[in-house]
Amino acid sequence: MSDSCTQIIADYAFRSLGYGERLLPRTDFTLCHEFTLIGSGLIWNIYFGTLALLFGFFFATGLALAKAAPSAVLRRPAELFIFVFRGSPLFIQFFLAYELLVMLPKAGIDVFGITIETAWTTKAWAGALFVLFLNTSAYSAEIFYGALQSVPKGDIEAADAYGLTGWSKFRRVLWPTMLRLAWPSYTNEAIFLFHATTLVYFSGFPAFQQRGDALYYAKFFADKTFNPFIPYPITAFYFILVTLTLIGLFGIINRRLNRHLPGQHRPKLRIRPQIIR
């Protein structure tokens, strides 16, 4: 192991994914070690956050529509789902999901002669992602539902006057307006989802071969060096970068969603942590 920083980066940049040097450093922790390994862990945070957000977006739209549906068959399950996932701590959800997934038969489930493997579901990349997906779906669905309820009456009447019904009415009028109204809150949700990904390796899901996320490595360094003043600020620095990137990306989408409005009426994106989660 060389002391040069490029060598450290080459050794540890993808340590969290299982590539490069297997053994974690034991002594002589340099700033470079800490930056590289915590950055390596950040890959997991981005993986969890991005995929949960992407899948969650579509499921949340469906849930919001179901919650707004007049039929109780659709509405009740959606309400229950949203209540359970918004009303309980994510931490407990991770624990419960892990315990449930561990209970699946180890040898796999036999369906019509085809064995479905179950071992992979207890791994964080699948199990924790699934929980995060359900969790963000519930929070986003509540945001989308609120926005759907505040779509201006005039917009709907105009759509009716144009003879739009069903899918085309939803696709051309309801959905874009809903997204436009929901977007500032949805940006908050995205930011807090990325923050929530730090919980994965502190709840039920074990970090296989010490492949963890950014906070996992930060705690590793803090425990080894008894110096919390370096690893945690590095983690904070990385997360501020992630937050700023998210605000930038969501700001671009926000501009596109509001492009038909005259300049001074376009709502600006602001993070308001008091509104969410």
Binding site: I191, H195, L215, Y232, P273
Partner: peptide, 20 residues
């Protein structure tokens, strides 16, 4: 402070700092 940094970072950081 809480806008960009996950709260759990503070939960791990503050007790250690206070203790030390």
């Amino acid at each position: 402070m809480v806008r960009g940094i996950p709260d759990i970072v503070f939960f791990l950081f503050v007790p250690v700092v206070m203790d030390q």
